[in-house]
């Protein structure tokens, strides 16, 4: 893994952005975290348009469900309809532990689901596990 892993974080909460950044900084794997703050920007990023022409293709998308303009669900629906983008694993970040929110995420073919913890240490652990899991065990399609 010589190249840094490209991660797209779609999140509108400034605090969560910092926390996620911090958590990934602690990770062992070299990564580049790109942040967009709403669903529309996320799609622009993925389609490389409207100012995101130079955006790399992410290896992993972390998607918050509650966002202004276009929520995570709509973004996910769009991604899963695109033959190219649907190969990118999407992990839903959510505050709620409600059964229906989890179910909804999986119905939309999210690869995984992470509940944002109250405890930062726990959050760090979660991100760590995520990195271990997705970047060591799961093999992604080779990049061109």
């Amino acid at each position: 893994m010589g190249l840094p892993v490209e991660i797209l974080l779609v999140e509108d909460n400034e605090g969560d952005i910092i926390l996620t950044k911090k958590a990934f900084e602690k990770g062992k794997i070299m990564n580049r975290l790109h942040v967009v703050k709403n669903g529309l920007d996320a799609l622009d990023f993925l389609y490389k348009r409207n100012g995101f022409e130079d955006a790399p293709r992410p290896d992993l998308i972390l998607l918050d469900l509650n966002m202004p303009k276009m929520n995570g669900q709509q973004v996910l629906e769009d991604i899963k309809q695109n033959d190219d983008l649907k190969m990118i694993p999407v992990i839903i970040l959510t505050t709620s532990n409600a059964d229906e929110d989890i179910l909804k995420s999986y119905k939309l073919q999210a690869s995984s689901y992470i509940r944002k913890p109250v405890d930062f240490k726990q959050f760090g652990q979660v991100i760590q596990t995520l990195q271990d899991y997705w970047f060591t065990i799961v093999k992604f399609p080779a990049k061109e």
């Binding site: 909460n13 605090g15 505050t95 709620s96 913890p117 109250v118 405890d119 240490k121």
Partner: peptide, 18 residues
């Protein structure tokens, strides 16, 4: 309650630890 009340709580908890 599940989303909006948890949000600020998470901020407090996480950032105090940070």
């Amino acid at each position: 309650a599940s989303h909006d009340l948890q949000e600020p709580l998470r901020m407090v908890g996480n950032f105090v630890q940070l």
